[in-house]
Design a protein around this nucleic acid. Structure first.
Lengths: 203, 203
DNA sequence: CGGCCTTACCCCCAAAAGGGGGTTTTTATT
DNA sequence: AATAAAAACCCCCTTTTGGGGGTAAGGCCG
């Protein structure tokens, strides 16, 4: 029997999952939390094999929480269960130690297949996410940490000069990064750049 | 017995709702659809009293779909059930004829209370949304249709001149709108304007 | 019928962004 | 040790934006 814990703030969804897993013969729910804080308190006690983790938690980012869990409990397999099917989110989640990724509109049988696979130490991506990760590279934009930092500052409305002062670089360097970001994302100007950054969850 | 239909692409969530309602004594589920298209085919046949409607449908916006339903079946009470708790979305949903608004992290008992209230012809807002709607006016920004149109074009990266050509106005007029949008949203520049527009779901 | 909001228009000028072309150094990864 | 990528820097010039001022017609509502 696979021990499963769930962290998601959508109470209706956790109830749905709970009964779905309860009806199966391969897994059992050992705990449910509705926030990262609540989960931290009980995780050591629950000792799950698999943790179903939502990215959009109310208190901290699921990305950071996944990292935290894998550091403290490397033996737990994290299976992300979210509404996002953006490349940047999936990639960061896997980089942070997640073993699998399901999107919430997946079928019930994909959830069970995912639980079984990650419990056995395999990596599991649901169909839609699998397709996403295999897309041609030019559609799956990936930025360096510095580029993401700059993108964030730009989206906060700082000018090149202000950014330069804040991170102790030359304004000309910032211009260079900005031009490169426009090029990489194929954006016409800052308005589109910010829109794409948010849509693709790059910031 | 209240007849309830559900439209939501998150299959796990619809299953959770189905069992939640099935366990109650006041309502029964007469149908479930996972897209607007699927719902259109069956709605006349199901004849529900209450329709639980997700805003984030895969095919069309739940906002438009709500309007469509209320035009064709004004006797059905629409209860929005979504992840968004942005003023602009709630307001448009209610303007389009919805009788109530629940966010997905609401408790199970709020869902049942909502179904009961809207079936009785009342308006129902879950606790969090109720607080949101009662906030001071300056926090709940509302734009005229023209302003929203301009905001959309700006976020698509069009310059003042390009917008002027597209909607047959003087570039100076566009400048005026742009300045006013910056003022209304309290944005420093276009980057922040676009970010706020997306975050507050104004476009 | 007098506000008030929306829509639409205009000028001046400074600041910022964008298009084009480059160079160098450090840091991974093979 | 070779190479690739990231990070940092520079100049010229044009277009676009933003800050500051305005004006005025038409609709809505109490």
């Amino acid at each position: 029997m696979i021990n499963v814990a769930i962290v998601d703030d959508h109470k209706i969804l956790t109830e749905g999952l709970r009964s779905l897993i309860a009806e199966s013969t391969i897994a059992t729910v050992v705990g449910v939390a509705h926030s990262a804080a609540e989960c931290r308190l009980s995780l050591g006690f629950w000792k799950p094999d698999v943790l179903l983790l939502d990215v959009g938690l109310p208190d901290i980012s699921g990305l950071d929480f996944c990292k935290e869990i894998k550091e403290q409990f490397p033996e737990i397999s994290v299976l992300a269960l979210t509404t996002h099917n953006e490349y940047a989110i999936v990639r960061q989640m896997l980089d942070n130690g997640a073993s699998g990724y399901l999107i919430k509109n997946a079928m019930a049988d994909e959830v069970m297949a995912g639980i079984e696979a990650v419990a056995a130490g395999e990596t599991f991506l649901c169909h839609e996410v699998d397709l996403l990760m295999k897309r041609p590279a030019e559609k799956n934009i990936w930025l360096s940490p510095r580029e993401r930092e700059l993108l964030l500052l730009i989206s906060e409305g700082l000018t090149n000069t202000e950014i330069a002062e804040q991170i102790f670089l030359s304004p000309e360097t910032i211009r260079g990064y900005r031009k490169n970001l426009l090029l990489k994302l194929g954006a016409k100007n800052t308005a589109v750049l910010v829109k794409m950054a948010i849509e693709q969850k790059l910031i």
